[in-house]
Lab assay of single mutants.
Amino acid sequence: MDETGKELVLALYDYQEKSPREVTMKKGDILTLLNSTNKDWWKVEVKITVNGKTYERQGFVPAAYVKKL
């Protein structure tokens, strides 16, 4: 869990989004888990830094590609 009590997951593999509802992740990324009720796709939040500014983006990743921490 992070400092706000949200559950975290670890990306076990790289994943490139294939639709606007998904998010890209790299092996080793730590993501915030938002919803894991679907056994195949989990909703996560990723933080992306571009030119020194951090953005948060929500989307789905394959559940088999992440592990709860």
Rank of each mutant, 00 (worst) to 15 (best):
Y13E: 09
L8I: 08
T4A: 13
L10M: 15
N51T: 07
G52V: 03
A63F: 02
K26N: 08
N51L: 11
Q58H: 09
E22D: 05
E7T: 14
I48P: 03
K26H: 09
D2E: 14
L12R: 04
G5K: 14
V66M: 06
L34T: 04
K6A: 12
K39N: 13
F60V: 07
V61N: 00
I48G: 06
T4Q: 14
V23C: 07
K6F: 13
E7L: 10
K47M: 12
W41P: 00
V66A: 02
K68V: 12
K6C: 11
K18V: 08
V50F: 11
M1F: 12
Y65C: 08
E7F: 11
R57L: 05
Q58N: 08
N38C: 08
L12Q: 04
D29K: 03
A11N: 01
K39F: 08
A11M: 02
E45D: 04
T49Q: 12
L34A: 03
A11K: 01
Q16T: 15
T37C: 11
V44W: 00
Y15G: 01
L8A: 06
T4D: 13
S36Q: 10
K47V: 13
M25K: 00
W42Y: 07
K6P: 13
M25R: 00
Y13M: 12
E56T: 15
F60M: 09
E7G: 11
G59S: 01
K39Q: 12
G59I: 03
W42N: 01
V50D: 09
K6N: 11
E56W: 15
V66P: 00
Y65Q: 05
G5A: 14
G52W: 05
D14P: 05
I30H: 04
Q16K: 14
G52M: 08
T54N: 10
L31S: 02
A11W: 02
E7Q: 14
P20L: 08
D2A: 10
E3F: 05
Y55W: 12
D2W: 05
I48A: 07
L33R: 01
E17R: 14
T32A: 12
K68L: 15
E7I: 15
A11L: 02
Y13N: 09
V44I: 06
A64V: 09
Y15C: 02
G52D: 10
K26L: 07
R21C: 12
L8K: 13
K18E: 07
M1R: 06
W42F: 06
W41K: 02
D40I: 14
L69M: 10
T24S: 15
T49H: 11
G59L: 04
V23G: 02
N51P: 06
G59A: 03
N35R: 07
Q16H: 13
K6R: 14
K43Y: 15
I48C: 10
A64S: 13
I30T: 06
I30G: 01
W42Q: 00
R21G: 15
I30L: 08
T24L: 02
K6S: 10
R21H: 14
V61P: 00
L31K: 00
D29Y: 04
S19G: 11
E3D: 13
R21D: 13
G28E: 02
Y65G: 05
D2Y: 03
Q16S: 11
N51Y: 07
V61T: 01
E7V: 15
V23S: 01
D40T: 14
K43M: 15
Y65E: 02
N35S: 13
K26E: 05
M25F: 09
K26R: 11
K18R: 15
N51F: 10
T54V: 14
E22G: 10
L8W: 14
S19I: 04
K43D: 03
E7M: 13
Y55R: 07
A11G: 03
K47C: 10
M25I: 15
P62H: 02
Y65P: 00
N51A: 13
K18P: 04
G28R: 02
S36D: 15
S19Q: 07
M1G: 15
K43G: 05
Q58C: 08
I30V: 13
T32E: 09
R21F: 13
V44C: 04
L34R: 04
M25Q: 01
D29G: 03
E22Q: 11
V61C: 04
T37Y: 08
E3T: 13
L33K: 01
V46C: 09
E56Y: 15
A63V: 05
Q16W: 13
Q16N: 14
W42C: 04
Q58F: 06
K43T: 07
E7N: 11
E17L: 06
L12G: 01
E22H: 05
S19R: 08
G52K: 06
K67D: 06
A64E: 09
G5I: 14
Y55P: 02
D40S: 11
W41D: 01
P20G: 08
M1N: 13
L8D: 04
L8P: 04
G59T: 01
K18A: 10
D14W: 03
R21L: 14
V61E: 00
L69Y: 08
N51V: 06
V66T: 04
M1E: 14
E56H: 15
E22P: 04
G52S: 07
E22M: 05
T4K: 12
D14C: 05
V23W: 03
Y55F: 14
A11H: 01
M1Q: 15
L31H: 02
L33Q: 00
V44M: 01
E45S: 15
L8R: 11
L33E: 00
K26T: 08
I30M: 06
E45F: 05
G59Y: 02
K27Q: 09
N35H: 06
L8C: 10
Q16Y: 15
K68M: 09
Y13T: 07
L8H: 09
P62K: 03
W42L: 04
T49I: 14
L69N: 03
S19K: 07
E7W: 12
G52R: 05
T49F: 12
D29L: 04
K26D: 03
V44E: 00
V44A: 01
E45P: 00
V61Q: 00
E17D: 04
